[in-house]
Amino acid sequence: MQQEDRKIFGKNPSKAEIEKRFHDLLSANGPALLRLARSYTKTTSDRDDLFQDIALAIWKALPGFRQESSERTFVFRIANNRAMTFLAQRGPATDPDADVEVPDPGLSPEAELSRDQEGVRLTQAIQILPIEYRQVITLMLEGLSYAEISGVLGIGESNVGVRLNRARQMLRRLLEDSAYERR
């Protein structure tokens, strides 16, 4: 993979190579980026808008990518930065009193019922977290290591650990509170 990357991200990648790499990047990371976008938005249309913002930002940055970091770090760094800008432009999604709506198009009522309810509750709780905690927890849930999260956010690994601990405490409390309310 690294040798292939070196060939594609060499001095002057062709347009076709960039397009192919862009398509491959989105195919490989699309679901993760969509989940990340969901954690910053209230509705499906906002989520899709943010996803497009992220994807277009990756498209613009791709020709200049010279493997200073891994592809995953590159993609998630752009995603987090775009998400922050999106929040600034649209306002924060973290209104604890608002009903968070994340409907998926094309799902039948039966399919919606059988959908992972716990996953929805988890997303809703993450949407309430302050942004600095939301960033670390979503990246950790996507399987990034401390070093990778540090590279994405531009903070030290010890800082990642501190934020992650606080994020987990808050998230646990939110999930326990929502479980109690459902009884």
Binding site: L26, P31, R35, Q52, A55, L56, R115, D116, G119
Partner: peptide, 18 residues
Amino acid sequence: KQWQGQPSVVVDLIRRVE
């Protein structure tokens, strides 16, 4: 598992971006 197990519809979005 809960986080990554959520359904996602990505193909149309990728086409729109391209």
